[in-house]
Design a protein around this nucleic acid. Structure first.
Length: 209
DNA sequence: CGCCTTTGACCTGCGC
DNA sequence: GCGCAGGTCAAAGGCG
């Protein structure tokens, strides 16, 4: 498949509260482009217990695993996290919860107080296929034409049990060869691949932290 | 028959 | 408060 991929990763662990509402609701995506021979090892690992500069990209350990996994649909995909939009992922918090910067204590505190936004991330791939085979089963529940774009955005929900993971898929207007896939939430189960891989599950579990 | 997609209606958040 | 845009629901129909 594709020799070159551009990638964005935009983890948004947006467990909002009054204190951080402003910062966390005005997030935005950031895109990075890399040559195909870019080596993920060039990226620093996620810092533990230290403050990140907002502009410092870092590679989540599970992603580096996933990148090496044959299970992931686009082998040449490069993944990058940017901490800029999310105050919980850097700066004010020095405690990392699976790379998303959300402490479990904080999550409990928020429960029931305000709408919780699930952890999210997006990536951009150059592919003919709209929906990447990521090992999970998805049911489409909506499609919407987004303003100022020619390509509709599709909405999918994981069909497994009461898993609440969602994903959005849309083609880039400027370059229809590019597909932006956005995952929201984390799976509570293993991928439902019927065949093939002998031990892909750990990779994908990690992928969704 | 069960599961899926399609699609218009409805809901909700946000900016003005 | 109103209007817009994005997100979700749910009925209808298609397909294996």
């Amino acid at each position: 498949m594709g020799s070159k991929s551009q990638i964005l990763l935009n983890p948004q662990a947006l467990f909002e509260d009054e204190e951080h509402e402003q910062a966390s609701t005005h997030h935005q995506m950031e895109f990075f482009s890399f040559p195909s021979n870019f080596n993920v090892s060039h990226l620093p690992s996620i810092p533990q217990h230290q403050t990140l500069s907002p502009s410092t990209p870092f590679l989540h350990p599970s992603l580096s695993q996933t990148l090496n996994s044959s299970h992931f649909p686009t082998p040449n995909l490069l993944s990058l996290q940017t901490s800029t939009p999310n105050p919980w992922a850097f700066g004010k918090r020095n405690e990392y919860h699976l790379g998303l910067g959300v402490s479990t204590m904080k999550m409990k505190k928020m429960k029931g107080r305000r709408k919780v936004r699930e952890p999210r991330f997006s990536f951009k791939t150059m592919t003919d296929v709209d929906v990447l085979d990521d090992g999970y089963k998805w049911r489409k529940y909506g499609q919407k034409v987004v303003k100022n774009t020619h390509h509709p955005r599709s909405y999918y929900r994981c069909t497994q049990d009461d898993c609440r993971v969602k994903k959005r898929v849309e083609r880039l207007d400027e370059d229809p060869r590019m597909v932006i896939t956005t995952y929201e939430g984390r799976h509570i189960h293993s991928p439902s691949h019927d065949t093939q891989d002998s031990e892909p599950h750990t990779h994908l579990n990690n992928f969704f932290w």
